[in-house]
Design a protein around this nucleic acid. Structure first.
Length: 506
RNA sequence: GGGUCGCUAGCUCAGCGGUAGAGCACUCGGCUUUUAACCGAUUGGUCCUGGGUUCGAAUCCCAGGCGACCCA
């Protein structure tokens, strides 16, 4: 039967409910128990045994097995499933003023309907824990058929486009989003205990900054001005430290106008945190604690499995400088090079590709790191002491010229967190902004202009401060063993289907 | 950006040049211990879209759309 016919049949059933004086769209149901709670509480109840306790449950009908004078429904709520035992005689006794109570179950309910039931506990002869129903109500009539009860919904595109259907029929999807909520809650609890305040900063900004990324552009009508969606929360959180907040953070949505892949969604969630008086060594320890806390909120052990790979999150994690780890993997000692030409020659000999555009030894070092090292960093590893050229907001290293006090955390070959002792010298910061602005002027779409107000804030004085940013989606992917970022974002961005596209105005 | 693969009933899929199919779901009938309930009978199609080749296209070719995976 075609989709429209299935829908028409269900609309007709809704009308029949109205003719019986009932509404297909109820108002309230007093739930006393959830499925998982009952399954747990009566786990030891013997087959065939009954308990004379009245419970009330509600959920979606996921399966119907109807006999002449007996029916079994599988009811699914947020926690799990429980069977409803629907006995014609029992229902006719307890709903004696409703002569159609049992026939209505057979004729006017469908898989997908929301349903409330009150009754007693009974484990059937076949061993299935059930609610032996005394009274019930159809709470919401569903007009759309659910996917195949056995094969479920496997079409990946349809799962993302109609996530609500995915959530109905794939319990592991519900589990991922439950874990995501537990992870973000655990992170906020941890930071709260450490004395951090969450302060919200603007999404709409006159000048995007704080990262190298193309921004989304939007427009404010009344002010008649172009605005950008933020690509980072960094510059505003640091203004708050200037203002006197010693520990601040924000967990929120970031927007980057870039490609879509299994690891990139144009909007994603980051956390950035700033701590006055600390340096990058302090922050590495905090990151360890933060991620361990998040992992413990959803996993039984710190020895975890990600896509067939075993990873041990037990701290402390390895800390090694970028120069040392590159030397370890390639044999190249970047401290020895006294000219860019010499470094390029050696790098080419070591098999590092596409380095013609590198205009400094520091960028070359980073290129060598990305090509030869990143993918090998499976166990959690902090890489430290980055070249200043690729770290425009980080404080110069206290003893290593040309480097900054910065770390990035890698797990399963992916950048998971990025932090540094913050640059507090406003003159130095201005020079670095101006170097960026020059790149922007030269056509680099990921570079941004000088943020004068931020420089002004630095002139009032930023105390010694360490900051850190981390992608929440990638952390959830790691802890929930998800291969694609779309598996941890409830409604990932998709191109509209052809039929949804409005015709171009010409 | 490049390559490979996919798109057929509400769902999961088969069919690969000759009348569009199966299972589940739906509809009708039967059934008081099922849990992929069962038994019987029906119903259900823009074969992603548009061109082309052909006597004939879901099938072959071209272009486009959406998606997946790999590479850069």
């Amino acid at each position: 039967m075609a989709s429209d016919d299935l829908r028409a049949t269900r609309l007709e059933k809704a009308d029949q409910l109205r003719q019986q004086g009932l509404t297909p769209y109820g108002y309230r149901w007093a739930v006393t128990h959830h499925a998982a709670e009952l399954q747990d509480k009566y786990a030891d109840l013997a087959a065939g045994a009954e308990v004379e306790v009245v419970v009330s449950v509600a959920g979606r009908i996921m399966a119907r097995r109807v006999f002449g004078k007996l029916a079994f429904f599988t009811l699914q709520d947020e926690t799990g499933q429980i069977q409803l035992y629907l006995d014609k005689k029992a229902i006719e006794v307890s709903m004696s003023d409703d002569s159609q109570a049992f026939d209505r179950l057979k004729q006017l309910t469908d898989v997908g309907d929301w349903f409330g039931a009150t009754g007693t506990i009974k484990r059937t002869e076949k061993g299935e824990l059930s609610v032996k129903v005394q009274s019930y109500e159809i709470l919401t009539k569903s007009l759309q058929p659910l996917p195949d009860k056995w094969h479920g919904l496997t079409d990946i595109e349809k799962r993302y486009r109609q996530r609500y259907v995915d959530l109905i029929v794939n319990p592991e999807v519900r589990d991922t989003f439950r874990k995501r909520a537990l992870i973000t809650a655990a992170i906020r609890r941890y930071l709260d205990r450490q004395g951090f305040l969450e302060i919200e900063t603007p999404v709409l900004q006159a000048e995007a900054g704080g990262a190298d990324a193309r921004p989304f552009v939007t427009y404010h009508n009344t002010l008649d001005m172009q605005l950008y969606l933020r690509i980072a929360t960094e510059l505003h959180l640091k203004r708050l430290v200037v203002g006197g907040f010693e520990r601040v953070y924000e967990m929120g949505r970031i927007f980057r106008n870039e490609g879509i892949s299994t690891r990139h969604n144009p909007e994603f969630t980051s956390i950035e945190m700033y701590q006055a008086y600390g340096d990058y060594q302090d922050m590495m320890t905090t990151v360890e604690e933060l991620i361990v806390t998040a992992a413990e909120s959803v996993l039984p052990s710190l020895k975890i499995q990600y896509q067939e790979q075993a990873i041990d999150l037990t701290p402390p994690w390895r800390r090694i400088t970028m120069q040392d780890v590159v030397q370890e993997q390639t044999g190249l000692d970047f401290r020895q090079f006294d000219s860019l030409a010499a470094a390029k020659t050696a790098a080419k000999a070591a098999g590092i590709r596409d380095i013609e555009g590198c205009d400094s030894i520091g960028r070359l070092l980073n290129e060598a790191f990305e090509q030869k090292v990143e993918a090998t960093l499976i166990e959690p590893t902090f890489i430290t002491d980055y070249p200043v050229e690729i770290s425009p907001l980080a404080k110069p290293h206290r003893s290593e010229p040309g480097l900054v006090e910065r770390f990035e955390l890698f797990i399963v070959g992916r950048e998971t967190a990025n932090g540094f002792s913050e640059l507090t010298d406003p003159v130095d910061q201005r020079q670095r902004f101006e170097a960026q602005a020059a790149r922007k002027a030269a056509g680099d779409l990921e570079a941004h202009g000088v943020d004068e107000d931020f420089l002004m804030a630095l002139e009032y004085g930023l105390p010694p401060t360490v900051g850190m940013g981390m992608g929440i989606d990638r952390l959830v992917m790691l802890l929930c063993d998800c291969a694609s970022i779309r598996d941890v974002i409830a409604f990932p961005l998709l191109k509209p289907e052809a039929s949804e596209v409005e015709p171009e105005k010409s």
